[in-house]
Deep mutational scan, measured.
Amino acid sequence: MQRVNMIMAESPGLITICLLGYLLSAECTVFLDHENANKILNRPKRYNSGKLEEFVQGNLERECMEEKCSFEEAREVFENTERTTEFWKQYVDGDQCESNPCLNGGSCKDDINSYECWCPFGFEGKNCELDVTCNIKNGRCEQFCKNSADNKVVCSCTEGYRLAENQKSCEPAVPFPCGRVSVSQTSKLTRAETVFPDVDYVNSTEAETILDNITQSTQSFNDFTRVVGGEDAKPGQFPWQVVLNGKVDAFCGGSIVNEKWIVTAAHCVETGVKITVVAGEHNIEETEHTEQKRNVIRIIPHHNYNAAINKYNHDIALLELDEPLVLNSYVTPICIADKEYTNIFLKFGSGYVSGWGRVFHKGRSALVLQYLRVPLVDRATCLRSTKFTIYNNMFCAGFHEGGRDSCQGDSGGPHVTEVEGTSFLTGIISWGEECAMKGKYGIYTKVSRYVNWIKEKTKLT
Rank of each mutant, 00 (worst) to 15 (best):
V331Q: 00
Y371M: 13
D212M: 09
S423Q: 07
G363Q: 10
T290D: 05
E418T: 07
I214F: 09
N138A: 07
S107G: 08
R379E: 11
R162N: 12
C97V: 03
D198G: 13
E208K: 09
H400R: 12
Y115M: 04
N138C: 03
Q408G: 14
N343Y: 04
E456N: 13
V377G: 03
A380L: 08
E10V: 15
N295C: 04
N127A: 06
I17R: 03
N135C: 05
Q219H: 11
S70E: 10
S182E: 07
G427R: 00
S411V: 15
Q90D: 12
N310K: 05
P414A: 11
L163N: 03
L163W: 02
T215C: 04
H302W: 06
M65G: 04
S365Q: 15
V257G: 01
A307M: 11
F224E: 07
L24G: 05
Y22R: 04
N100H: 13
L244R: 01
E320F: 02
A308G: 11
D249W: 05
T264I: 03
S430M: 10
Q143A: 02
T29W: 06
D150H: 09
Q96C: 06
S49N: 10
Y341F: 11
A317G: 03
C69N: 00
V419H: 11
T186W: 08
Q96A: 14
T84Y: 02
Y115R: 04
K339L: 06
V4P: 09
T342A: 06
G357K: 15
K89D: 12
I256P: 01
T276D: 06
C108R: 03
N283S: 08
F78G: 03
Q241T: 15
Y161G: 01
E54V: 01
V359Y: 11
C396R: 02
S99T: 12
L23M: 13
L244M: 07
F176W: 07
C119N: 03
E66D: 05
N113K: 13
L346H: 05
G236Y: 05
I284D: 06
N42W: 07
V243R: 11
K347Y: 07
W240V: 00
K387L: 06
V377I: 13
V278S: 07
K247R: 12
T426D: 00
E159G: 08
A192I: 08
Q237K: 05
N328K: 02
E323P: 05
T426M: 01
A308Q: 14
H400L: 10
G427Q: 00
V326N: 08
F348M: 15
N104E: 04
C108A: 02
D198Y: 08
F55I: 07
E456D: 15
K455F: 06
A308P: 06
T461V: 11
C407N: 04
T458I: 06
V242L: 02
V202C: 06
S70R: 04
E320Q: 06
Q241D: 04
